[in-house]
Design a protein around this nucleic acid. Structure first.
Lengths: 361, 361
DNA sequence: CTGAAAGCGCTAACAC
DNA sequence: GTGTTAGCGCTTTCAG
């Protein structure tokens, strides 16, 4: 183990017991601790280092399996390589893949993800933000609409750590956003259905929340443009889960003249609608066509497989992470400097849509 | 400063700009920084503190909105209040709620969750463990079976940070585990089905993975005990996702004498099986009964709603977190000291099971 | 009972 | 080019 150098003391080289510090590898490579720091941090810009020294240090560090202590690093004000996530419900079939996509991209950039679930509870989101900030996360990503928590928005916009909101549902001053183009998505659904001969539409999912609200607006807008402006009774509110879809679907079909085509604000709702249709012995797509939004993984395994608007989860997550991490730490609160990205959705035709049934005409 | 109280200088009380340190609140309450530390940490055991002093400090800290810096705390070797999670796929319909349940309990205990997704990739899990350890997580929770990654197990057992494995599928030396009682669950399913007159069973989900393996073993064991020992062709392998369920179901029904009742190792597979049955125009439960395992949130919204074994996610997650956090940091590797908990599952009868169809007898 | 002081592992001025 | 020297905010001896 004598290596031409350092032979006597031989500190704790072969013992992976205690986590080694820079001091350890400084000793082992016969330089000072600060040199080690410089080498390992590629402080090329500030100070040039002898190639030989650099290589020796790097070699020793690698050989001993040195790993920098993120805590000490963060203490000194350097980046913690932590990315915070705030999401309503991790287990939502849409947001779970979103969280996964975010953490994939984060890890590609050597970031760790600190997960904060707000459970739809107002105060929790705010507390989470405080927690994530206190933990010195380098950036925070907010998944979904949190606008029913006004204070959160203020906190976020004033936050010293960069915040990016994904699927927030609309642009936002002071915070970067990445959204899917809801208008394009809904228009694609409607155009697909009108091409199949449908003329009377229903929409499940009225709510004040971002994406849902935008999709409903797009629904009204597009139909109006086509001269098929919907009545109030053609649009029903719903909680964004399958149970809400069941409830909404029942209400929608209870009207005098039920629609022949239904669009739901999310696939979550579509799953419920499908369920309710099954209960009502309504054949899909023979008697009724149904289109969802999001293209969650389970959409293709619904019975029948769901025709839906594809939400580009991976792309949006990736872009969101890049924005969050790239943004210089202090610029977050500066209005005007914020970016609002809108990505185009896809459209996936599966088995819940078909020609409009013949009517008495 | 006169504390009749403190009126003149008024340092940075109203300015929440810079995050305040203990020094700040020490100054503001006229004591030394170390006293503040003692008060805020309830160092009752070591040193008694004057009630008056303690209250003054606490009041100041509260008033100024002081939050301790977790980084500095962790640097000194204290707990970081970080809980690491290693999971294959966050977006798995079963593990997503599990992650949520873990993070709920973690937050109740003031812990933050660092999420590590292994994406079914072998090396990633190991790397994740290294990351979480380097981040000085106080404990690590492993979700699901990772035994196809032998090195991870060694790493975990040798880890200085306590590790608890949930839904690992069996007991484990050197690591605490919390499992659901798969034998009881499968037995409940079989008993329910035999009571309905079923005699020929199928099982989807042969695989070397923990829970799945145990459930298949329980399937064989229980049926054998009933004198209904299954043939090899009554058990089919499958990847644990809906697509695997589709595939498995088709293969199962392709045999000469198909079963009248099918049990799947997971609800994920059951979703696929349901889908495949729909394709094959097989009426469920009239022609065939189906039972899943896990009771994922979507089970009740399948078409028809899925009869399944209920996996007590919240309880297991809660117990797992408590074990992980309660365990003194150095005891993890000590074999013999480990706990292996097994919780009882429930059974939920919904609409995929019914009387066995009449046969030619 | 409380203050002073020494670090935890690292980065970033400063020196030579 | 590299070593020395301060701290980051906190816990924890050690002195009073």
């Amino acid at each position: 183990m004598a290596s031409g150098e350092h032979n006597l003391p031989e500190p704790a080289a072969r013992a992976p017991e205690r986590t080694l510090t820079m001091q350890d590898i400084a000793l082992a490579s016969g330089v000072s601790q600060s040199t080690v720091s410089r080498v390992l941090n590629d402080s090329v810009t500030t100070v040039p280092i002898a190639v030989e020294t650099r290589e020796r240090v790097l070699e020793t560090a690698a050989r001993l399996g040195y790993r920098p202590n993120p805590l000490a690093r963060g203490l000194r004000g350097a980046r913690t390589m932590l990315l915070g996530i705030i999401v309503r419900e991790i287990s939502d079939p849409f947001f779970a893949p979103a969280v996964e996509a975010v953490s994939v991209r984060a890890r590609e950039l050597s970031y760790s993800v600190v997960l904060g679930s707000a459970h739809s509870r107002a105060d929790e989101a705010i507390e989470l933000h405080a927690v994530l900030e206190t933990r010195h996360c380098d950036a925070i990503i907010v998944l979904g609409d949190m606008r029913d928590e006004p204070r959160l928005l203020e906190d976020l916009a004033a936050s010293k750590v960069p915040v990016v909101a994904l699927w927030y549902g609309s642009a936002l001053a002071g915070i970067d956003t990445v959204n899917v183009d809801n208008r394009v998505g809904v228009a694609a659904a409607i155009d697909h259905l009108t091409a199949l001969g449908h003329r009377r539409f229903g929409f499940i999912g009225e709510s004040p929340h971002g994406d849902v609200r935008e999709r409903r607006a797009a629904f009204v807008e597009r139909l109006t443009a086509l001269g098929l402006a919907p009545d109030a009774e053609q649009i029903v509110p719903a909680h964004n889960d399958p149970a809400g879809g069941v409830e909404g679907f029942r209400r929608l079909m209870a009207h005098g003249e039920p629609p022949t085509a239904v669009i739901t604000a999310t696939d979550n709702l579509a799953i419920g609608a499908l369920h309710a249709a099954h209960d009502l012995r309504l054949a899909i797509p023979a008697q009724l066509s149904l289109v969802g939004f999001d293209d969650i993984p389970l959409a293709s395994f619904a019975a029948p497989p769901l025709t839906t608007v594809h939400n580009p989860i991976a792309e949006m997550a990736s872009l969101g992470v890049d924005l969050a991490i790239a943004r210089p730490a202090q610029a977050s609160g500066r209005p005007g400097a914020t970016q609002n990205h809108v990505l185009a959705p896809g459209f996936v035709v599966r088995a819940t849509t078909g020609p409009a049934p013949h009517r008495g005409e």
